[in-house]
Design a protein around this nucleic acid. Structure first.
Length: 416
RNA sequence: GGAGGGGUGGUCGAGUGGUUAAAGGCACCGGACUGUAAAUCCGGCGGGGUAACCCUACGUUGGUUCGAAUCCAACCCCCUCCA
């Protein structure tokens, strides 16, 4: 491994953030000399970001902590094109209204991880719709299109994969990499941004931007990618019992977020502690050395630290408290998902499968019945084996009813 | 524009007139074993119904037939070759 001496590169190397860099030595020198502005682009394809993006967010956080300036680029313009990277079919074109709504959700995530403002190392947020949507076709082609070799573009993974698999790729999508490259040039011109970072799958797009900067303006730009994070058993990271692991509390409760980290595979604990927490490396080394059931302590630390960053310490402690009550004492906790039913409904009796669905533990009555038949459903911690069972106010214990789907998913029913 | 191939469930991929809600794999959800881990094994895996059963589904729309994912027609889209 290359020896680096700048704080930023040293830390991110040691913590396992670096997949590839266009010129480590020169970037290291630059980082020692001046405050470097670096950006990462995020497309607005969903109303929040999920843990897949968290590695890059932590990277921006370290950048800021080591005295540099992080720039968050919202892909308001490029999202209208659709990045073909890693996909073998075109994205559904999104409406401007969807993109705008998604952008608002994504912006709120960054406020928790970065300090925004006007100071030299304060983070800033920019939107590429500001310059992309006003481009004129002919001038753009003459000024920038001539720097792109189609022969070369065809060799990039994102395009080659489509060609090899013989799946359709529209000219619209083909242009994505050109626009992303142009973003880098535009940001370099506007704000002197020198470095673009991103996921390993963005390598080709990033290199295009570095080269465009050199060809057009003789700029010395840099690219750095972080590895795609998969779990030790090979699965793409980011699934919880409720689906994707979103970073917004509205999409995924802090309790479920905490649970996601608590359920990390043993083999991933050390790596995840380095990537997703800011604990000192010697402390992490101690935690990951724990054996057998002891390593659960390390998972709790991971859950606490990661949840504190995303949702604040109070939410992390509350989640831990609920988890302790539910898993270690077999009780209930305030953070469990709650559904309220009317007193009349409950007095009349609610079929158990319907109640499981209303509580969000199952998505349909059929699934709830299957859960019951399979022995995975519990009512107040007692296995429920009758799909015709009616749940009534007689089932209330201390004013609530605890429903469980499997060992890990629980919900509370209360009367309004 | 011409010729040929193809569009199947979350995904990959079988299936060419009836027991096909559609083989198999993956993903996912339960159960057992555990440590709220991994691996392994078992079960489930469109919707509604206690059930009998009903509804929806194999690119789209029509048609043939007692009966269609399977046959026919038109249309849409993708791939390959030719011009």
């Amino acid at each position: 491994m290359t020896t680096v001496s700048s704080d930023f590169l040293r830390i991110i190397h040691d913590r396992g953030f670096v997949d590839a860099c266009t010129d480590t030595t020169a970037l290291d020198a630059l980082l020692r000399e001046e405050v470097v502005s670096a950006y990462i682009g995020y497309d607005c394809t969903a109303p929040s970001l999920h843990v897949g993006s968290l590695v890059s967010i932590m990277l921006l956080r370290w950048l800021q902590k080591t005295g540099h300036r992080p720039i968050v680029l919202m892909g308001g313009g490029t999202t209208r094109i659709g990045d073909p990277t890693g996909r073998d079919d075109a994205r559904r074109l999104m409406t401007d209204a969807e993109i705008t709504a998604n952008m608002a959700g994504i912006q709120s995530v960054f406020a928790k991880y970065l300090t925004f403002g006007d100071g030299p190392t304060d983070a800033r947020m920019v939107n590429n719709a500001d310059w992309l949507s006003t481009l004129s076709y002919i001038p753009f082609l003459r000024d920038y299109g001539r720097h792109f070799s189609v022969n070369r573009m065809l060799t990039f993974d994102s395009v080659r994969m489509r060609l090899e698999r013989e799946t359709h790729m529209s000219f619209l999508e083909f242009n994505y990499m050109i626009l992303q490259a142009y973003d880098f040039l535009e940001l370099a011109r506007r704000d002197g941004i020198r470095l673009q970072m991103g996921g390993a799958d963005q390598w080709g797009n990033i290199v295009n931007g570095v080269e465009l900067g050199r060809r057009c303006d003789g700029l010395s730009l840099f690219g750095l990618t972080v590895p795609l994070i998969t779990s030790a058993s090979g699965a793409k990271m980011g699934k919880s019992a409720q689906g994707a692991v979103w970073l917004n509390a509205e999409q995924l409760s802090p309790y479920d977020f905490w649970q996601f980290w608590r359920n990390t595979e043993d083999a991933d604990v050390g790596r995840f502690l380095r990537l997703f927490t800011e604990l000192p490396l010697d402390e992490i080394a101690r935690l990951e050395a724990l054996e057998g059931a002891e390593i659960n302590e390390a998972k709790k630390v991971l859950a606490h630290e990661a949840t504190t960053l995303a949702h604040g310490e109070a939410a992390a402690l509350a989640a831990a408290g609920t988890a302790r009550a539910v898993f270690e004492q077999g009780g209930v906790g305030e953070d469990l998902p709650t559904v309220t039913v009317s007193a009349d409904d409950l007095a009349a009796g609610i079929p158990a499968p319907a109640l499981f669905t209303r509580a969000g533990l199952t998505v349909s009555n059929g699934e709830a019945k299957r859960l019951i038949k399979g022995g995975g459903a519990r009512l107040n911690d007692t296995v429920l084996d009758d799909i015709t069972r009616m749940v009534t106010d007689a089932d209330l214990k201390d004013g609530e009813i605890k429903l469980s789907a499997g060992r890990k998913s629980h919900a509370l029913v209360r009367v309004s």
